[in-house]
């Protein structure tokens, strides 16, 4: 499968996780990894499965590198119908009111433009004991397994 891992990052933690996801998947798939800051919404296509990793910054805001992408998505009349994505959020539950709102807001923006979300949005808590990759890698492996089952059945 063609997979593009997209990340929205502020401190680099989401970028690191995106790279981990790329490494974990690239034996079986054709995987690229890119910063949302360098991504044009118009370039998202239906053939590629998009795996989005997005943190939260400030008061539940999108991280800096996702902001220009979100603005472009808002401004242009982009039609993302046919685009499939999964999204993983990073946050810090110390700030419980705004925990992982960055990824939540970004998912809503994708869907508002007609994109289809595959699987549930899972999140990692920076103040918790787990490592982000220990949650994200089984998450994406499951999603991909389900997708291939559906493909075979379909």
């Amino acid at each position: 499968m063609k997979i593009c891992v997209l990340y929205g990052t502020e401190t680099g933690n989401a970028e690191m996780l995106a790279e981990d996801i790329q490494s974990a998947l690239e034996d079986d798939h054709d995987v690229t990894c890119r910063n949302l800051a360098d991504t044009d919404p118009a370039a998202l296509d239906g053939e590629t499965f998009h795996v989005v990793v997005c943190s939260t910054y400030g008061d539940g805001d999108l991280p800096a590198s996702a902001q220009p992408f979100a603005d472009r998505l808002e401004d242009g009349a982009h039609d993302l119908s046919g685009v499939r994505f999964a999204i993983f959020g990073l946050g810090d539950a110390e700030y419980d009111e705004t925990f992982t709102q960055g990824s939540e807001k970004l998912a809503a923006k994708f869907k508002a433009r007609g994109a289809t979300q595959i699987g549930a949005r899972l999140t990692h808590d920076a103040s918790g004991d787990d490592l982000p990759e220990d949650i994200a890698l089984p998450w994406i492996t499951d999603i991909l397994a389900n997708m291939s089952v559906e493909q075979e059945e379909g």
Binding site: T11, G12, N13, M16, D92, A93, E94, D125, A126, S127, L131
Partner: peptide, 15 residues
């Protein structure tokens, strides 16, 4: 000391 989540960047730096 009570912002351990912010200290998470240390994992990047360790790499």
């Amino acid at each position: 000391a009570d912002h351990q989540g912010t200290k998470g960047v240390m994992r990047q730096f360790a790499r």
